[in-house]
Simulated assay, not measured.
Amino acid sequence: MNLLFIADPLESFKVHKDSTLAMMRVAQEAEHHLWFCESRHILWKGDLVVADCQPLSIKSSLSVWFELGEQQSRALNVFSAVQMRTDPPFDIEYLNTTWLLSAAKRQGARVFNDPTAVRDHSEKLSITEFPELIPPTLVTRELSAVEEFHKVHSDIVIKPLDAMGGMGVFRVGPDGLNLASIVETLGENGARTLMVQRFLPEIAQGDKRVLLIRGQVVPFALARIPQGKEIRGDLAAGGKGVAMPLTADEKRIAEKLAPILNERGLFLVGLDLISGYLTEINVTSPTCFVEISEQSQFNVSQF
């Protein structure tokens, strides 16, 4: 099989823990042929969506871990599968790429995750489809609405809708210190929509990443545990990743969502759970494959 990976520059990969690289290694070990390009190399040419891509070989060396062949222009519909693994943020160029991938799908390309489903699925707002599973939540541009939410819940977290890796996440405690300033800054004086949630102190035990693959639930989660005085468990924010079996509540939530999301064409999904509450549904480029595999001996990439 010929597999095309659309991803960030290979030089930017964190070789020791990159989930996309883990997928590439397993595919190569299964004797599939790998191809690589960046999203900027996807284009409409003539009457087809094509990729200016290169054959890719994964090496055992950590210092020089890949080898690329000569660039070729190939229609996306000739590949056995196209994996979109470009990291967020979901900006206008990410959106443009999904439109091109949707056109490629109409031409017969097999794209994972489905670009239309990705485009329709806000990783933060999508949780509102399942209100029984989420903590008290407010989505607004209005400072007055945030202030009222704070009066009710006292200890809250405020975050932008388009950030990743814990960027732009602020906690405001019962004293309300800097609440207006945080909302005005993050919300650009009402120009950007924010998500506000009741603070969950159980974050101290970890923000759990639960992976769904082809509608099946990976039986281990990665608890991303905040360090020091930090409230963010994201690995990009310095959190410590600890693999552990799913709890009964985590398994129940994951098994409820897995068939629903898979039916929509969301082949690979990363749920974020804190103390049994659903906080995000990640579909752009879910990670934590390597950490779970190394610590649990459950090979996520072969699942």
Score class of each variant (00 low, 15 high):
H33V: 12
G241S: 03
L21W: 03
K256T: 15
K256A: 10
L101E: 04
M23R: 01
F66Q: 07
G233M: 13
R192Y: 09
A22G: 06
L200D: 12
G173R: 15
S39I: 11
P115Q: 11
F13R: 02
E142P: 00
A163G: 11
F5L: 11
I58N: 03
L56Y: 06
V283G: 04
V217F: 06
Q295P: 01
E38K: 15
F289L: 04
E202D: 12
P286L: 07
M164E: 09
I42V: 09
W35C: 03
R171T: 12
E230P: 04
G176W: 13
L278F: 07
L194Q: 15
D120E: 09
P136Y: 00
S73I: 14
K240F: 04
E29G: 06
N299I: 15
L235F: 01
D47T: 14
Q216K: 14
G173D: 14
G239H: 03
T137G: 05
L133Y: 08
I253C: 01
V152K: 09
N189P: 00
R224K: 15
G108P: 07
D207W: 14
L62S: 10
K240Y: 02
V26P: 04
Q297T: 11
H121L: 02
G108M: 06
L21K: 01
M167T: 05
Q302P: 00
V111I: 14
L211T: 05
D249W: 12
L161P: 05
Q83A: 01
G166A: 06
T140A: 07
I156S: 05
G276Q: 10
R171S: 12
